[in-house]
């Protein structure tokens, strides 16, 4: 699972360089997110614009990644493609995460 990070202001942007976060890769994703977010940035933006598909395992792994950050840090999601967006909205996970249509919108949003 390839993840690449850049910093912008006080936010860490983690880009997922994979087309699917599904049962075959969910555990790896969770572990890779743990290493990638060790730096401790208070806000992490997960750029999902390359991800075309997630299943419930992928959804669970993203929830796990958020829990791994701890209560002082925030995980926002950006660039959800149609199938991914559909899974989040059906399960009401759009009430748990802030979803941004694009990375620009995510970085432009002020976070307290």
């Amino acid at each position: 699972m390839s993840l690449t990070s850049t910093m912008t202001g006080n936010a860490q942007i983690v880009t997922v360089n994979a087309e699917r976060i599904d049962a075959a890769i969910a555990i790896q994703f969770k572990e890779d997110m743990r290493s990638e977010t060790e730096s401790g940035a208070s806000r992490v933006i997960l750029d999902l614009s390359e991800v075309k598909f997630i299943d419930s395992s992928g959804l669970g792994a993203i929830v796990a990644a958020m829990k791994q950050l701890g209560s002082d840090r925030k995980l926002d999601l950006a660039g959800l493609t149609p199938m991914v967006d559909k899974v989040f909205r059906l399960t009401r996970m759009d009430t748990v995460f802030d979803l941004y249509a694009s990375l620009n919108e995510a970085t432009a949003a002020r976070k307290s």
């Binding site: 792994a61 929830v63 829990k67 059906l90 399960t91 748990v96």
Partner: peptide, 24 residues
């Protein structure tokens, strides 16, 4: 539909599969 109203640390990481199957 799974209840997501609790604290973050208690959020479920699974169990969504049958809900998605039924919903679609």
């Amino acid at each position: 539909l799974i209840d997501l109203s609790g604290p973050t640390e208690d959020l479920p990481e699974g169990g969504f599969g049958w809900f998605l199957i039924r919903a679609l």
